[in-house]
Every structure is written in structure tokens, then in C-alpha cells.
């Protein structure tokens, strides 16, 4: 992105990103044994915290807000919501 003369309100110097991972009180944890790789969790995740990598769906935690939609929508109940901080 090129540098601009800021004579009017515009933004292009980097990306405005919030640390939304800190919002989480519970984290989704995937039970790989139950997972059938249907991908519904990815389609419904509002923050795109679920990725498809090496033919597997994986949960990333950098921006996951812990809403729990993935756990509710998983047809095989392969995702559990686990309290943050207290460990597993």
C-alpha cells in the first residue's frame, strides 16, 4: 500500500486489528475423533477462527471470541466449550 498525503480522512497504513481473543471466557476444543470434516463449523464461525489445513478443520485462537456457535452447530458434537484459565 502506498503512502498517501493525509489531507482528508483515509486509512491505509496497516490494518486495524483488535485483540478479540481476550474476550474469550470459554474456548472451543475439537475432538478430532468425533470430527467428520463436514466443515459446518467453518461456515458458521463469525470470526473465521476455523481454518482448513492439511485436509483437516482446525480451530485457531488468535481472534476466537468464544461465542460457542461452532459447538452448537457441530452435528457430531465434536466441539466442547472449555473454561479459559482453568485449564482442561
Amino acid at each position: 500500500m502506498s503512502k498517501r498525503v493525509h489531507i482528508s480522512p483515509l486509512a491505509n497504513e496497516g490494518m486495524y486489528i483488535l485483540d478479540t481473543a481476550s474476550w474469550r471466557t470459554e474456548r472451543p476444543v475439537m475432538n478430532k475423533e468425533k470430527c467428520i470434516e463436514c466443515g459446518l463449523c467453518l461456515t458458521y464461525c463469525p470470526v473465521n477462527a476455523i481454518i482448513f489445513d492439511e485436509n483437516k478443520y482446525k480451530i485457531t485462537y488468535n481472534y476466537c471470541k468464544g461465542c460457542g456457535i461452532c459447538a452448537v452447530e457441530c452435528p457430531k458434537k465434536a466441539i466442547d466449550m472449555v473454561p479459559e484459565g482453568g485449564g482442561k
Binding site: D19, W23, N48, K65, G66, C67, G68
Partner: peptide, 10 residues
């Protein structure tokens, strides 16, 4: 942006 301040479950 990967992190935006929409509510949980928005």
C-alpha cells in the same frame, strides 16, 4: 480485519 469489535456470536 481478523479482529473486529462485533459482539460474540454476531
Amino acid at each position: 480485519t481478523p479482529g473486529m469489535s462485533a459482539c460474540q456470536g454476531c
